[in-house]
Design a binder for these strands. Structure first.
Length: 574
DNA sequence: GCCGTTTTCGGCCCGACTGTTTTCAGTCG
């Protein structure tokens, strides 16, 4: 059985190899767009063999539809196999190296037989690159630097780390230059779960002064490049930060441009072009006479093209520009809509804070309620609560609720066993306000068994929420091999919510699944998975991810006021 | 390879920077 990721990556490999071969760049672009489209369709693409049906998706025509169908039937794409016979597949790794693109990769392969990054490094160190057509000693040096940079920077940065570092930078700049206009841009502003580097944009009357201060911030380890409009530094943690300064009347256009994403910007300029407009980082212009229509603020940039302004989190070319054109952009859920948190551990199991501390912090965050979900007894490694301990905790919670403060819900994070069974007897489960059920073991089981376990758990009337549904830990553990289409479908049928676990290295469900959950009407429950009181603030990143998944307040259970929530919990879910 | 309120052929986003060149190719975001 194939996967969406594999199928999409096959098209990316075809694009890479075609590019190295020197095929027409628009053909290459078409393959890359197809890969994007496939990822946005999701798993249902794997069930479609009919070429006509496949062609209905944007960017998929005769040729690519046939290849998808071929993959669905055979698990392979013959065209890719042919390309692999023509040249080594390892060559695609060279394209990831900064300062090295398809033309140079081909040249190095043809002239020096370079097939891999190791070959390349050897060739550069032996000074065999300088002297090739169009390549001199500087390019050779830059390629070596690029290899080093790539190896040092292999892991991307988690969103919260990037957000915090950029916060320090912005804070430092604003303190030194009161009145400075500066913002995050790039994938950080779009709140992607990981970011490669940090982009900061600013406008200031003296760019030189700003650059001086930027390059001298205490966080700076080394200045990589320093110019009047663009500088790059490396932080002590080894993160690259790019700073750009623009004129005030270009601010909006520059912010739009540097926020991206690239596919979003490409689509935007296509739309502009059809309207006789040109858009770049300086503004929006009439093509016929060059007249400038907008540029000072971002909203006016979109407005000049007859578009609403999509929130940055949506700018991935997943339909947001069409919605902006039709005036149907969603009203996304915001941090201010959140009335409580569904997933919190205390020192009773594997957390570090007391019920009281958690309640106090929840109060400071403005919450009306908080779900206490310590681990259940079958999870010994996390000191899961025995029946007598959970009964004690329920009593402690009821007692605390008699005092003023956020309402604590007595709940539990149950374990989904190998046959989909959960912890505790029926009478204990009936005492609890709600439960989350999560998979904590057997990650490597077959797809069928994992899916069956989850479906079984959802059919349990006491289970209101499935916790961290794909089980991934970003950069450390891949998602379980679970049939998410089946899980989403059954969640919709049983009225079971899926968690968006907001712990920084989980962010599980990921945005792509949130989009599908929303279409199926599956409700999403945000949980910080806090193990300390400070962790409750991770909700911020959960909300950001929810926004990337186009979720509106009614899609998210955390927007319910206490009375509404209690009423919802009293009603049987199915 | 895709696509069509100017098109079934001839287009397909835009500009900056770098290093190598005396006019431009390659790379990047």
């Amino acid at each position: 059985m194939g996967s969406v990721d594999e199928l999409a990556s096959f098209f990316e490999r075809i694009a890479d190899l075609d590019e190295i071969k020197g095929e027409l760049r628009f053909k290459v672009l078409a393959y890359r767009r197809a890969a994007e489209t496939i990822r946005s369709i999701g798993e249902s693409v794997l069930g479609i063999d009919d070429v006509k049906k496949l062609r209905q998706f944007p960017g998929i025509g005769e040729g690519i539809a046939k290849k998808i169908s071929e993959y669905n039937r055979t698990g392979l794409i013959a065209r890719l196999e042919e390309l692999k016979d023509e040249m080594p597949i390892e060559l695609v790794a060279l394209l990831k190296i900064p300062n090295l693109g398809p033309r140079r990769a081909k040249l190095l392969y043809d002239e020096l037989g370079v097939r891999s990054v190791v070959d390349l490094q050897g060739a550069a160190e032996a000074h065999r690159i300088a002297g090739l057509k169009g390549l001199g000693p500087r390019v050779e040096q830059n390629i070596l630097e690029g290899i080093r940079l790539m190896q040092a920077h292999a892991g991307r940065l988690l969103l919260p780390q990037a957000y915090q570092i950029s916060g320090e930078i912005l804070g430092g700049l604003r303190e030194a230059l009161p009145g400075l206009v500066a913002e995050r841009a790039g994938s950080l502003r779009r709140m992607k779960e990981t970011v490669g580097d940090i982009d900061v944009l600013a406008t200031w009357h003296s760019p030189k002064q700003l650059m001086e201060i930027f390059c001298g911030l205490p966080i700076v380890e080394r200045v990589i490049a320093r110019g009047d409009t663009k500088s790059s530094i490396l932080t002590r943690e080894g993160i690259q930060v790019d700073m750009r300064v623009v004129e005030a009347d270009q601010w909006g256009a520059a912010l739009q441009y540097f926020t991206g994403s690239q596919p979003h910007n490409v689509r935007l300029r296509e739309i502009a072009k059809k309207k006789g407009l040109k858009v770049n980082e300086y503004g929006v212009f009439l093509v016929k006479n060059g007249e400038k229509l907008a540029g000072a603020d971002e909203t006016s940039v979109y407005e000049a093209m007859g578009l609403g302004t999509p929130p940055p989190e949506l700018r991935e070319n997943r339909g947001e520009l069409e919605a902006a054109l039709e005036g149907t952009l969603p009203s996304l859920v915001g941090r201010e809509d959140i009335a409580g948190d569904f997933h919190v551990h205390t020192q009773a199991s594997d957390g570090y804070s007391s019920l009281e501390d958690m309640r106090e912090t929840a109060s400071a965050l403005g919450y009306a309620w908080l779900g206490i979900t310590d681990h259940a007894e079958n999870l010994k490694v996390a000191r899961g609560l025995t029946t007598s301990k959970i009964l004690d905790q329920i009593e402690a919670i009821r007692a605390l609720n008699r005092k003023a403060g956020p309402y604590l819900l007595a709940a539990s994070e149950l374990n989904i066993g190998n046959d989909g069974e959960v912890d505790y007897d029926e009478d204990v489960l009936a005492e609890l306000d709600f439960t989350i059920a999560s998979i904590h073991g057997g990650f490597r089981q077959e797809r069928e068994q994992l899916t069956r376990r989850m479906v079984q758990a959802m059919e349990n009337p006491h289970v209101r929420i499935i916790g961290h549904p794909t089980g991934r830990v970003i950069g450390q553990r891949p998602p379980y091999e679970v049939d998410m289409d089946a899980v989403l479908q059954r969640a919709a049928e049983t009225g079971t919510a899926l968690e968006l676990n907001s712990f920084p290295d989980r962010l599980d469900l990921a945005d792509e699944y949130l989009l599908r959950a929303r279409q199926l009407g599956v409700k999403i429950a945000l949980g910080s998975d806090a193990h300390r009181a400070e962790h409750l603030e991770y909700m911020f990143y959960g909300v950001a991810t929810a926004r990337r998944g186009w979720l509106e307040p009614e899609d998210v259970l955390n927007t319910m006021a206490l009375e509404q929530l209690l009423e919802w919990l009293r009603r049987p879910k199915m």
